[in-house]
Design a binder for these strands. Structure first.
Lengths: 257, 257
DNA sequence: CGGATCGTTCGGTATGGTCGAACATGGCGG
DNA sequence: CCGCCATGTTCGACCATACCGAACGATCCG
């Protein structure tokens, strides 16, 4: 495994976590590398605008090419492309915000986001990551994973985001069991106080979870007595099924030349 | 300059341009490298989810980490952070869509985008890149560059996007001259037929252009007889000045720890 | 069934990435 | 204003390791 490349991405990830800019020495310390090594890697990354140096502090931050590449990732993403229409209609029917996410390491990455159809100001969450155990998208994907992968996830750290976050392994396993039975996952203020989510998994032709779709919003709009509003759960499941059918169909990419 | 790292980013850029997925051999050909070399680089990139392999075609595409990093870039971007309020108010006052961009190589990268305040469906352009000579954002930034950088830009290829794109060097220089005089740049269907833009540069304390802000929309709303509507040009210039003042002020980042 | 194409593995080679130490630079406090 | 500390940068040497060519295996297509 090419060492320098992995170290370069480690630098990028380090710069990406936390919005503070980092200097050569600080990066070298965090990654356990020699200063000169990090310096060389940064020079190479800087040449392609993968990182930029702040002119007056001399410290490094992520570069604009990453935004371009992130956007290119989205444009080529099959689940996202297919989910756009479904998500719009789901937001319309339920009058809630809709999120589509995929699994990335131990987190869920939001790849599509439709605002609640009212005039309230909402921030776009595309590109954001959420610990898998603290969102309905993550739990429903975990519930439909093979045991090996699930075990790996359960073994990892489970940070507590709010007082309601499930951080106990046993408790989580029980929740996953219920999710498998219901076909939908709920999240009740486990990531942000006052916010809830109802999500269902999108599976490919082989039955593997490739993503998840769900509605998010204020608890009082989504849950009653800690249970998902049946109409919303039904709509979410229906959309997830439709999307899954789409994903199993003919490839959209691989066209042209 | 660390070879493998630069080659790795070359792979990412190659995968990012064009939405087609690429195989090992194809990438090796395009980059002029040995198959085994590209394979090794891809393995390293794949380990960190910088790229992903399509299970059934075996070809590679960009990975989800790039979306996360692109998002992290945005969150740490000073111009973007400072422009959000200004852009909102500009969109409100002019009733047009607003874009904020920065210079990246020979392109403009959109870092912020506010939709026109009506109910029409519009697509978010954050992360998109546009050749510098085909948008007002790019031209106004070029107009306020030192000669060396400008020369480099003028020397590069100038693709023709529409029949109105300025691709002649002399013509472009004349346009830049006028932009310097007016303080605003206009773009009249030079990127997309029917679309126009009016933009002004954002400069830092030293007077260097760090970005640009502008309004975009249908030609008939922005221009009259090929000239910028004076009220719009004034509003854009005013916002650019305000933003420049902001950027010259105290740093927002570097706080904490 | 045969050919072609592509992904993958392997081992030798010398390139070039890594590191420690020395050198510049700038910022801060005394 | 000066000296000190921390940080960025350069240098040279070592040898790990990235690179390549060639061979192997898998897969697709006719």
């Amino acid at each position: 495994m090419i060492q320098s490349v992995r170290r370069a991405t480690a630098i990028l990830l380090e710069l990406g976590s936390g919005q503070r800019r980092l200097g050569v020495t600080e990066l070298a310390d965090r990654l356990g590398l020699a200063k000169a090594t990090v310096y060389g890697l940064l020079r190479a990354l800087e040449a392609d605008e993968m990182v930029q140096r702040d002119v007056e502090s001399g410290k490094y931050r992520l570069g604009p090419v990453l935004l371009q590449l992130g956007n290119a990732f989205l444009e080529g993403h099959e689940l996202r492309a297919r989910s756009m229409l479904w998500a719009d209609s789901l937001a319309d029917r339920t009058e809630q915000a809709v999120r589509v996410g995929i699994s990335m390491g131990s987190s869920i990455l939001i790849v599509h986001h439709v605002f609640r159809p009212d005039t309230s100001v909402q921030i776009l969450e595309v590109g954001a990551t959420i610990p898998w155990h603290a969102c309905a998208l993550g739990k429903v994907m975990a519930a439909f994973r093979d045991d090996a992968e699930l075990e790996q996830k359960l073994a990892g750290p489970l940070p507590r985001l709010t007082g309601r976050t499930l951080v106990d392994r046993r408790e989580l396993e029980r929740a996953l069991e219920r999710i498998r039975r219901d076909g939908v996952a709920i999240e009740d203020q486990e990531a942000i106080i006052g916010e809830a989510e109802i999500a269902a998994a999108v599976v490919d032709h082989a039955g593997h979870a490739v993503g998840a779709v769900g509605v998010v919003g204020p608890v009082e709009r989504l849950l009653v007595d800690g249970f998902a509003r049946p109409d919303l759960a039904g709509a979410v499941k229906q959309v997830a099924r439709g999307l899954s059918r789409d994903m199993a169909g003919a490839r959209v990419y691989e066209r042209g030349r």
